[in-house]
Amino acid sequence: MDDNAIHLHVKQWYAWAPGVEDVDQWRRWADGSLMFAIDAVPALPFIKPMLRRRLSQLSKMAVKAAFECLNKESNDFIADRTVFCSRHGELTRTVGLLEALASGDELSPTGFSLSVHNAASGLYSIARGDTAPSVSIAAGRDTLIEGVREAAMLLAESGINTVLVVVADEPLPSYLLQYADEKQGPFALAILLSKADVGKGCSFTALYDQQQDVDSKEPQSLEFIRFMLSGSNSVVMSGARCDWQWQQNVEMQNV
């Protein structure tokens, strides 16, 4: 076993994209027979309308994934920590605010207050009644990897047995599309992680001497979903500075 690898256990995961919401649909997406729909809003029946109206499309996707993933454990399950990740965060709101400034309009107080990077985390915590500490992360193309690494560090603490990692992103606003360096599409992924000594193990390792040169890279979260569904034991996914090897079904000994 590689000593540099980080070992975790994926207890549950759930992913949402427009038109791709359950495992069967994700399988069809993975084999190429189903595409993301152009537009769809995630259903959030578990959130009161007065709170729900505050959620942007991004926050709706993130909160949807978080709830559905936790509900697989039980409807009142709460992880010991949460890590909310997004490469671009509430950029759609921010661009809206900048457009308002550019045309001399006053800023929407609601839009301003919810344009922060931890908006999804805050709204989730209110909706779930989850008072556990939460971290919000943006880490470029490595956003999933760094979110999971944060979770691994939290799990190394005693008393922390479960961490929920949520990754959600939207396509870049049109002004910024020219800077895109990976495939654009809305998605949210939630992974409930625990220490590696229970059940099926998963590990990831930085391959510092290796970097794939791919033109149109898929976000790591989507590669992760593909990998989880594939049943294969190992995959190499590209990162910002190096490639990463993910393994699953790893024999967990001496961890």
Binding site: D105, E106, T110, S113
Partner: peptide, 17 residues
């Protein structure tokens, strides 16, 4: 109706406009 303080600011702005 159950509005809160952010709503007060938002509504004030909308009425002003």
């Amino acid at each position: 109706l159950g509005l809160d303080s952010i709503d007060a600011l938002e509504l004030g702005l909308a009425l002003k406009n």
